[in-house]
Computed example of a mutant assay.
Amino acid sequence: MTQQYLLSIYQPDGETPPPEVLDPIMANLAALNEEMQAKGVWVFAVGLHPPSTATVVRAKGDDVLLTDGPFTEGREHIGGFTVIRAADLDEALEWGRRLAGVLSPLAIEVRPIAFG
């Protein structure tokens, strides 16, 4: 039985790299996503807008507080993620290594998804 894993992509705050830097990375990422799809491990992947576009919703008793901006302040944020199916953590970590290689020097966090 396979387990689903979240591969979170951490990136530094700041400007998006210029096209001459970003375009080859995105091409390599598309190729890796296609390989994951062909091997049946890819569930879905998304990129996220900057943390400045976030709204945090927090319930306190009967009140709900809305706060603009990210939940935590930091120098990096989750810029996107991929959900995969893998037989075990070792297989998920191998895909995480591959993703880290494409997106170097960005960090990839690999975490199993808990269902119900």
Rank of each mutant, 00 (worst) to 15 (best):
L99F: 01
T72P: 09
L7A: 04
P19L: 12
A86D: 14
T2A: 08
S52L: 04
V41Q: 14
A38Y: 07
S8H: 09
W42Q: 05
A27D: 10
I108F: 05
G74K: 11
A38Q: 15
V110H: 13
G40Q: 13
D23S: 15
S8A: 15
A54H: 07
S8K: 03
V57M: 02
A45L: 08
I9R: 06
A87Q: 15
M1F: 05
A59T: 10
I84C: 12
L22E: 09
D62T: 15
V102D: 00
L89Q: 13
A59Q: 14
G79M: 08
P70F: 08
I108S: 03
R98G: 01
L48N: 08
L93S: 05
G61I: 06
A114S: 04
A45I: 04
M36I: 06
E15S: 14
V41Y: 05
V41R: 08
A107F: 12
A31C: 13
I84F: 12
Y10H: 12
T2V: 07
E35S: 06
P17W: 10
I78H: 09
F115L: 07
P19S: 13
Q4W: 03
P24W: 13
I108H: 00
G47C: 09
L99I: 02
A87V: 12
A114R: 07
H49C: 03
V46L: 11
W95Y: 15
L65N: 10
A30F: 07
G116A: 11
E34A: 12
K39G: 00
Q3F: 12
S8L: 14
T53Q: 08
F81Q: 13
A92W: 00
T53H: 02
I25G: 00
L29C: 11
V110Y: 01
L65W: 15
R75Y: 07
E109C: 09
S8G: 12
F71L: 11
V110K: 01
T72L: 15
G116Y: 05
N33V: 07
P50E: 00
F81T: 01
A30K: 13
